[in-house]
Design a protein around this nucleic acid. Structure first.
Lengths: 94, 94
DNA sequence: TAAATAGGTTTATAATATAAACCATATTAT
DNA sequence: ATAATATGGTTTATATTATAAACCTATTTA
């Protein structure tokens, strides 16, 4: 009847991050922060969780002399996102 | 960009309950319990929250000699559900 | 009459989300 | 040169939340 919802994706901020990365394939921390309206601390924690789950990759690099955190969705992440969307439909009737 | 998600509805069990009530317009506690697979305790807590928010009505009646808890969605609840679905679409691109 | 079942509620616990506080480096102003 | 501010985050503390375990009352069955 109701398919279980991946708790990692059933979170407003993490879902927003994944949603961005599905389209962008690569995004910088400050960009994600701006688009989601999240605080840096919250965002940092949530991308760590997505990374620990293997849903995204985090590459720490430099942009000139300043640190730059790049995020990219993984195939596993894309798959999880699509499954989550399918599962949600069982609740929303869409 | 991303619309905020009503925290009351962004919960697996409460969303399932609302989803049932959108279609059924009236359902008994044990039926909801069975359809959602929830424990009685969890379900009891969650329908109380939905009721406190004015999203559902809880009618306590009897079925023969046994207690019977009936749930019904309210106009406010239906509205909140529809808004939630619309908001979610900004995350899911559907 | 004792045990089991039905129909829940209350309470305790564990997990989670969130922001505040913090840290390091780089840039700008004095 | 040095102080102040900004950039780019991380760590940690707190407050909420979800969840199930324990519990309660009445009813039915053995």
């Amino acid at each position: 009847m109701f398919k279980p919802l991946d708790p990692l994706l059933h979170s407003e901020l993490r879902l927003a991050v994944m949603s961005l990365l599905v389209s962008a394939e690569e995004a910088e921390f400050p960009y994600i922060k701006e688009q989601t309206g999240a605080t840096a601390g919250n965002l940092s924690v949530q991308i760590d969780k997505l990374s620990a789950a293997g849903y995204i990759e985090i590459e720490k690099t430099f942009k000139g002399k300043r640190p730059c955190t790049l995020c990219r969705i993984t195939p596993a992440g894309l798959n999880a996102f699509e499954e989550y969307v399918e599962s949600l439909k069982s609740y929303l009737k869409i």
